[in-house]
Design a protein around this nucleic acid. Structure first.
Length: 188
DNA sequence: GTGGGGATTTACT
DNA sequence: GTAAATCCCCACA
């Protein structure tokens, strides 16, 4: 089984699909990742790091294997794994997964939700795992464990972006019920 | 100091 | 399908 840092210390477009099938433990809940998206630093208009380093996105510029958590829409958190050599601001958004441990805890955090929807979408995923801004920057060694290689990975455009909406940098395990559905950005 | 926008989710018609 | 919820971040003045 591949080492986490070995996977993350390479270009984000190579690393992202390799995280599918990995397990992620936090707050008493374990997830099997089924859907991720790649954000490729300064060359990616859709990335938070596109306009350089700020207080918020600093973790993206740091060493690989740390959690970048941000708050959005006034009510949701999203979490990413920093990737690539230090100084290269790329990250992988954890979009969805299947709860494989801590089901009761996840249900309690998510309130009224079907088991399928517990971590189906980045905001739901963070809520199920109890992730918030206090977890920004945490070291993921021993937390995120790569799994065996997954065959037949699908890719397509990222969800909800107005910028760079054409880049097919979303990766998921085809047929898995916990993968979120594609939603284009709403026109203003 | 101000204002536009957002890597979303949920409930309601 | 559409709308509302809700607040932090950041660019610009």
């Amino acid at each position: 089984m591949a080492d986490l840092i070995e996977i993350l210390d390479r270009p984000v477009l190579e690393a992202a699909p390799l995280l599918l099938g990995a397990t992620f433990r936090h707050g008493g809940v374990t997830l099997r990742l089924t859907e991720v998206e790649a954000y490729d630093g300064p060359n990616d208009p859709g990335s938070h790091a596109h306009n350089g380093r700020t207080d918020r996105n600093a973790v993206m510029f740091g060493p690989p294997g740390h959690l970048y958590v941000y708050f959005t829409y006034g009510m949701h958190h999203c979490c990413n794994v920093s990737c690539g050599p230090e100084g290269q601001p790329s990250a992988i958004l954890l979009r969805a997964g299947e709860v494989v441990e801590g089901l009761e805890t996840a249900r309690a955090r998510r309130g009224r939700s079907t088991d399928r929807d517990l971590a189906r979408g980045p905001g739901r995923l963070c809520q199920a795992l109890g992730i918030d801004r206090d977890d920004n920057g945490i070291d993921l060694r021993g937390v995120l464990e790569p799994g065996p290689p997954v065959a037949g990975i699908s890719s397509g455009p990222r969800v909800g972006l107005r910028k760079a909406a054409d880049r097919p940098w979303r990766f998921w395990i085809p047929g898995d019920p916990t993968v979120s559905r594609y939603v284009a950005a709403k026109p203003r």
